[in-house]
Write a protein that binds this DNA or RNA. Structure first.
Length: 275
DNA sequence: AACAAGACCTGCATGC
DNA sequence: TGCATGCAGGTCTTGT
């Protein structure tokens, strides 16, 4: 589901609606998503003053009072919509928060691959879900030199390596395909061979595609919508993802965009442009 | 230790 | 119309 650009878009939308507000009602409409909700979650949410909203990889972190943090992952199908009090619960609205200005925030996740957790402020670095996560690709320090180092001795295809959140945080299937296309690197290339100028090109391509996607409000596919319910529109600018059999936009090769399966996931690429 | 495959869920498009 | 199949933005667990 949502990758870094979609999560960042949701974070920004939610921050506008939630920051500085108090939760006046917290309704957990089931006890779990992919795993059980943490103990006392409803009590911790109810009455909490919401501070800043941050993002780490595909996680959103919401400050609660002075000491707490709500940790949220949207899995494949999760969405969060902030609206008004009108309207009944939709199917798969699992958590519903009412704020002191009447805003109603709904966490909807059909497949329930998402995660909700609660942690103490300062636990971010040691929390099992966050510790060991690789660098933020849009922060300083993410460059070709870093990638070369991180990919050294990785005997897996570069496509799979980039999906590993320990190498770089926030990439998923769509943006990995798009970044590799932009960098002209075959998804089947051994990760350890991505070094030097090639690694620099890849780091730039990752930063560029993510930045452009955030500016477009993310990509709307089946489930993803922004926090206000609007659609992102970056899906119209995918060069290869979802374009199997269509001409490659960057060259005149006969076969066009191909789809293969790697580690159980679809990979889209152009065999001529990407080596 | 590193890597691939399986598992977890629901919904939707497709084809018979 | 119903039914079976395959696919979907992720990642944790299990097996080799």
């Amino acid at each position: 589901m949502p990758e870094l650009p979609e999560v960042e878009t949701v974070r920004r939308g939610l921050a506008r609606r939630m920051s500085g507000r108090r939760i006046v009602q917290a309704e957990l409409r089931r006890p779990d998503l992919r795993r059980p909700f943490p103990p006392m979650l409803a009590e911790r949410l109810d009455g909490a003053l919401i501070g800043a909203l941050a993002r780490r990889g595909k996680y959103i972190l919401i400050e609660l009072d002075e000491t707490g943090l709500l940790l949220l992952h949207l899995g494949m199908s999760g969405r969060i919509i902030a609206g008004d009090a009108n309207g009944a619960h939709a199917k798969h609205d699992h958590v519903v928060l009412t704020l002191d200005d009447g805003t109603v925030v709904r966490l909807n996740d059909a497949r329930r691959f998402g995660i909700l957790d609660y942690l103490r402020r300062g636990e971010e670095a040691t929390h099992p879900l966050l510790a060991g996560m690789g660098p933020e690709p849009l922060e300083p320090g993410f460059d070709g030199a870093y990638l070369s180092r991180a990919l050294a001795r990785k005997m897996t295809p570069i496509k799979s390596a980039l999906l590993d959140q320990r190498i770089v945080a926030g990439l998923g299937n769509i943006y990995v395909c798009e970044a590799l296309y932009r960098a002209g690197i075959s998804p089947r290339r051994l990760a350890a061979t991505v070094t030097g100028a090639r690694a620099a090109r890849l780091a730039s391509a990752i930063r560029d595609v993510l930045t452009e996607a955030i500016e477009a409000g993310g990509s709307s596919l089946r489930d993803y919508v922004q926090a206000n319910g609007e659609l992102g529109y970056f899906q119209h600018r995918w060069a290869v993802y979802g374009h199997e059999g269509e001409p490659c936009p960057g060259c005149t090769c006969a076969e066009g965009v191909r789809r293969i399966t790697q580690a159980g996931r679809s990979t889209f690429f152009c065999a001529k442009k990407q080596r």
